[in-house]
Structure formats: structure tokens, C-alpha cells
Nucleic acid binder design. Sequence first.
RNA 1: GCGCCUGUAGCCCAAUGGAUAGGGCACCAGCCUCCGGAGCUGGGUGUGACAGUUCGAUUCUGUCCAGGCGCACCA
Length: 542
Amino acid sequence: MRKDIQSSLVTLIEDSLKKMDLDSGGLLSLELVQDSRFGDLTTNIALRISKRTGRSPLEISKAVIETIKKEMAGSPLKGYITDVKAEGAGFINFYLSNGYFHELLKDVIEKGRDFIKSGTGKGKRVLIEFVSANPTGPLSVAHARQAAAGDALANILINLGFDVKKEYYLNDEGNQINILGRSIELRLKELSGEKVEFPEDHYQGEYIYDIAKAAKSGKVKNFSEFGVEYILGIIKKELEDFGVRFDNWFSQKSLRESGKIEKALGFLKEKGFLYEQEGALWFKSTEFGDDKDRVVIKSDGSYTYLAPDIAYHQDKFKRGFDLLINFWGPDHHGYINRLKAAVAAFGKSADSLSIIIVQLASIFRAGKPVQMSTRRGQYITLREILDEVGADASRFFFLMRRTSSHLDFDLDVAKKQTSENPVYYVQYAHARICSILNNSSVKFDPKGLDLSLLKEREEIELIKKICQFSYIMNICLTTLDPYMLTVYLQALAESFHKFYDKHRVLGQQDDLTMARLALIEGARLALSCGLELLGVSRPEKM
RNA sequence: GCGCCUGUAGCCCAAUGGAUAGGGCACCAGCCUCCGGAGCUGGGUGUGACAGUUCGAUUCUGUCCAGGCGCACCA
């Protein structure tokens, strides 16, 4: 929706209220109407101020509308507003003219793919950290969902004008890595005929044998390092095949070697946020809202996981990022408060770090749940999803629920090439449009367009849907969640299919055909951009 | 025990505090001499329970009930 109309209307309503000695009290907002029976733009201002003013909402609305109509008579707004009505409990509804929507569509066509861009985030630097799985095994389905969500959100923020970097924090040392090394070593001994006792808490997965075999031929000395390198290669390939690329891989090992952990702890100590007790060093996180204080250096002298993480996040700020967004698995949710405490201890505001918990996706086959166990190395991997479903359908599926909600992912449904599968519904709309646009007899030419020929209900509805794109982008920004985009794309595809079914593009009078080609080109742009942001392909043929 | 997530029609799910709560599946009945039928049209007494906040609650708060997940000087 074009901003100048909205802001002029807001000013108009504001002025009208003043003339009647009513004060909006900062409560005035003008919103898009989802239900076309009630116009295009609406405000509930009369409802919100009725109690304070002691007048009924409907009475206020009617009075305001009368004033608005007088004011509007001599204003250029008049051409865009066909009606203003007081409806329902006292809403003021604006009905916009077709001409207004024709201008919006014209704008989309002129801008092309750039129509989705905005300057909302101009000058703001954002670091999105996601996946960050330990390099001790192939990525799981949980990581896959984090990858889908983080990458899509990054794409969305980039189009909103933010300066975005994507980062993977690499836990390349510590307990788990040592265990990985020992696991490989033990499997190697086993392979060479030795009888070994393989501990329960070691990595049981079959892939350890593969690494052991590779290590054998390479005459490896440090099995941990070798294992990390090997698995990192797998992870990078998996992510690449999934269509996710990181700008930076941040190594924990290099963080420690740089001395930044000591510096960060030194900073906290200086501020008086650290103390010793029972031989360990504690961070006074309770001063910043945590339930209890947390250990940063254990009594054996080694760091807890928190220590490098504190340093890591201090480093993120030092690198100049204004907003940090972390996607974490649900097992880390208890960890949010202590990291936020650390951020507060650095003097950063609470909202400069957003932590998003990506809930698990349960995998189903033909309606039946698939059992998983990380410990025994029995879990559905990203690789299996890629092999079985492919990147397109799976990336869309992972984002079909709110990121913070559980998701049931049925592999058989995702594979289906029928209307049961929403991915194909959306892609099909795109392919249909391309099929018309690629028609050899008529070529779309934006010169001399007469969009005023578009006046059928389905045509106007489709334009409205196309123009909701930026509105959806803003919802994704405020929720830091790309999932509304999947909902929107399904609605957009539906609008197109309805138009397509009722009206023909080709074979009309030349100028009507051209206007409708413009309409479907607009729909194509919106579908194509939306799918691209989600990391889903836009087939021209299916 | 504590924390997080979730309860919407037979099943799967939508709805940035708004108006008559919307789609899909399944089921029934229709729609291609015509741009791709992977589509469209019609068929429905549904928000777990009880309070509270609000002009207005599926949405916010509290207490229950039910399901999923997590609780380290592990990473």
C-alpha cells in the first residue's frame, strides 16, 4: 500500500478530530483491511476514544466522516477515495478507487524485482547466527529447520535494507570434540582387528567408521582435529545443497587463542560482576534478571561453555553490529537469560540481542512418527531430507508454522506432487503465469499500458494481494519470523488461480490482453520474489 | 518440581486485540470447442475449562486440564 495516501489520510483524520475538539491521544492508526467487504483502509480511533470522551463510537465516526468529506473535497485525495463509511461497532472505513490500485500495479511493473525493496533498515548492521551445530556429526532435521528459518529471515532483512551477515559459530574444541577424537581412534582400532570397549557416551553413528577409514590412510596424529575437518566438510556440503551459505564461520578455538575470553572476563571482573566460590569463578547474572548465578570457570580451571560465548557476543558488538539475532534449538532455552545478562553487563540494551528458539520438527512418514535418538546416532539427517524430498519442498515446509512452534513434517506429503502439497500450489501458479508470458504470439510490452481496463473483481483482488508484499515483509521484521511469507504466498497463488479460472488473458482485445499481461507479470514478480526469499525455486515449467 | 512450545470442524492447520473465525485433506455435486484440471465453483450450528483486562479476546493475564520438549561446574 502506497505510503503517501496512508499518511495523508492519517493527517486528515487527525485534523478532523482537532476541529471537533477531540484528541486522538496518539492512538490513531490506519490499517489494511483483510476483508474486502469493509473497504481497504480502516481506523478504530472512534472506538478507542469513545470512553474518554463519553460519546458513542458510531456518533464520533459519523461526525469525523462528515468533516473528512468536506476537507477532502478540495484535495487530490478525492480521486483515490470512492467512499468513507462508519461501519460495525464504529470503524471508519475508507474505500479506495480502482484507479489507486492501477497506480500501485504500474509502480510494481516499473520497479520490477526491486518493488519488494525498502529502506526500513538502512544503516543498521545485523548479525544472524544460526545452525552452529557442533561438528561431531551430520546435520539433523532440527538444524535443517534452523537453516531454513535463519537464511530466509536474512534474505528478508536484506531486502528491507539492513546490512546483514550470516554466521556459523563453530565449536571446534572442548569436551565433545575430544570425545569425537576418541570415538574415531577407537573405531580405527576396531577396524584393525583390536577388541575395544566403545563407551556409551561416545559417538555411535556409522559415519565414525568412515572417518576412521579415512584417518587410517592419512596417518593421522590428532584424531579430534581430523574429525572436525572431515565433518565440517560434510556440513558445508549439506548446507550448500540446501541452498544456505554463510558469510563467516567463527571458530571457538581461534576465539580462545586470541585471548578474547580472558579479556571479556577481565572486563566483567573490573565491573565487579565476577566472584569466586567453592573454587569456581561465577558470573553475577542474577544482577541482570537471571534465576541464579552461573559458573564461567570450573573448579578444575577449565571454562564452561558460557565463558567463550560471553566473549563471542562481546566480539560481535565490537565488530560493529547493532542487532544480533541468534537462532537456537529448544534445548538452549534455559540459556537465554544468562547470555542476555552478559549483554546487559556489557552495557548493551536488552533488545540488541534477539534469541529465537526454533522448535523441533517431528518427522512423519505416511502419517506415522519416525523415532529418533541422537545418542545412538539414529536421527533423520538433513542429507536424508535432501535426498528424499529435495531442498525446495523441504525449505517451504520448515517455514509453514511459526518458527517457535512445533512442526509435523510428513515426508510423504512433502514429496507429493498434488494439491495436498502447498509448495506445488504456489509453484504451479508461477509456472502457469510463465507459460502465458512465454506465449510466442503475444509479448508483454509495458509501453502505452492502459491499466484502467482492469476492473473485474478478481483483477482488483489480485492487485491488492500483490501490493501486500511490503506489509508482509514488515510483519516478518517485527516477528523476526519468515513464516508469514509462506502463508502470504499461498493466498497470493489462490488469488491468481481464481483470476485465471474466470478470465482469459490471451485472445482479448489487444489493450485488454496487454493490461492483463501486466497484471500477471505483477503476480509473477511477487510470487517469484517471495519464493526466492524462502530459498525455493521458481519453475517456469513443471 | 521448574521452564519453553502447543490445544481452533472427522484429520492437518490460518487469522500483526477487531466486524459474519478462514484454507487444505477426506466426503458429495458441478466446471476444459478456450492461455497448463498440480486449477476453479457450491455444500459446515468448530476456538480445551473457568475467571480477569478491554468498547471488543482464538490472540493479552491468571488458575486448571491435556500433549510435546528441555532442565548440569555438558556443549
